[in-house]
Design a protein around this nucleic acid. Structure first.
Length: 425
DNA sequence: TCTGGGGTCCTAGGACCC
DNA sequence: TCTGGGGTCCTAGGACCC
């Protein structure tokens, strides 16, 4: 709720727009546009999936016919194929996905000064006070949905309500290509009968615990005593209780305020059993992370690594640097120390590098002791960044990667000389 | 050849201080 | 020798989202 200039309390009108099976729809629309007489992936059991030979073989998006075989996003392609042997599997094309996402956002920006890009395929819009210009919320939702379908070739669901949570829940109702409202007076009828797992922020683990407590539907949760929920879920209990009752006072925000951290990680196509190889992969991850850091004009003080072993046991280790930096060499030194301290010699499946405690690079002070050395490294990083910007990421690589068989820049989109997706959002 | 990658937030428990 | 207690900071891990 907010007070208008006349002092009248008005309900907000929030839209949540969600692309139906985003990756799959985008690929399908692209193929239809490029090729004549080709089959629409949305009409057959099909998924977008990673490369199994690289151990990236999971379902990233599924068609509605694939969903009928109970194929789930995130499950292995191996098990998806078991459920549906005739399944069509298509690799992801992240460049295309970014273009489709950007094209959709461009349409929203024709009407809305403020678009919250919640993810690559979801946006929140604030329609409050706009009925005057564009008609009733439902009329406008039809207009914008039809425009996207006609001009971009894919469908969206639109949820309409008085806050973001309810709008998001509404867009998740029947799909595809549908508009739903979930106003407060409709909560009891439309949201409370749903399984509690369908509520935003009730994940697998919370769901299991709720079922054990005899809480099966969102309505059950809404009517559960808050203090009981607190005793089992701490502050998360209060959150899901409020959500089950349709309460959310967060506002539609312009893009992402500022990143709290930058990280890249990779699943390696083989198990790594020696520290030389592991550190080479960590270097490639550090390079990408640091390029993104410098690109965002920030410096970092916290460095963390993560290791997932061949048997899927994860661990992480972190350390604070003595001062903020954006120098690849200095961050890599910390990464190596962390790895040596953390690795217990079990074969490694996955490695990650993440930096946080970010601050603007304009207020970073150089250490007096290392002043000359740091200046040299800063100049080196700068020239490398420039060359890569101008001639591509493979134009200059560290000698240690030569003949190593390891990608010199790891993280972001595999196989593509393309900027990191999240940094474009 | 079953199980990705990029994020954010919260909490338990230990270290340390007075 | 019957083992304070409050506070802060840090870390690792886990939960959730897309």
């Amino acid at each position: 709720m907010y007070t208008s200039f006349r002092g009248v309390i008005m309900d907000r009108i929030i839209f949540h727009i969600d692309v139906n099976s985003a990756y799959l729809s985008w690929e399908a629309a692209y193929r239809l546009q490029k090729q004549v007489n080709c089959i629409d992936l949305r009409t057959i059991p099909a998924v977008i999936g990673g490369d199994e030979s690289k151990r990236h073989g999971i379902v990233l998006a599924k068609s509605i016919p694939a969903k009928k075989y109970s194929i789930q996003t995130g499950e292995s392609l191996f098990s998806a194929r078991e459920k549906c042997p005739s399944l069509t599997i298509v690799p992801p094309n992240y460049k295309l996905f970014m273009q489709c996402s950007n094209a959709m956002v461009a349409i929203f920006k024709e009407y809305f000064p403020l678009v919250e890009r919640y993810s690559i395929d979801e946006c929140f819009l604030d329609y409050t006070g706009m009925s005057h210009h564009f008609g009733s919320p439902i009329q406008f939702a039809h207009h914008i949905k039809n425009r996207i379908q006609k001009e971009l070739g894919f469908t969206v669901n639109i949820g309409i309500s008085t806050n973001k949570l309810l709008a998001k829940m509404a867009s998740d109702f029947e799909k595809p290509n549908k508009i739903h409202t979930l106003f407060p007076h409709e909560i009891e009828e439309k949201m409370w009968p749903l399984p509690v797992r369908d509520l935003f922020m009730v994940g697998r683990s919370t769901n299991t615990k709720l079922l054990r407590l005899g809480i099966y539907t969102i309505g059950d949760l809404a009517k559960t005593d808050k203090t009981l929920l607190y005793s089992h879920f701490k502050s998360h209990g209060y959150l899901i209780h409020a959500y089950a009752n349709g309460l959310d006072d967060s506002t539609v925000k312009p893009c992402s305020p500022k990143a709290k951290g930058i990280g890249n990680s990779t699943t390696i196509s083989f198990d790594v059993t020696d520290s030389t190889t592991a550190k080479l992969i960590l270097l490639s991850l550090t390079e990408t992370v640091c390029m993104r850091l410098r690109d965002s004009k920030m410096t970092a003080k916290m460095v963390s690594i993560s290791i997932k072993s061949h048997d899927f046991i994860s661990l992480s280790h972190q350390m604070q640097l003595t001062e903020h930096t954006d120098i690849t060499h200095n961050i890599y030194k910390a990464v190596c120390t962390l790895f040596d301290e953390a690795w217990n010699k079990t074969p490694i499946r996955h490695l990650g590098v993440r930096i946080s405690s970010l601050t603007s690079n304009s207020n970073t002070q150089l250490s007096l002791l290392d002043f000359d050395k740091d200046n040299k490294y800063t100049a080196l990083d700068e020239s490398i960044d420039k060359i890569r910007l101008k001639y591509g990421n493979t134009a200059i690589i560290r000698a240690s990667f030569l003949h190593s068989g390891i990608n010199p820049l790891n993280g972001g989109m595999p196989e593509e000389n393309y900027p990191i997706m999240s940094s474009l959002l």
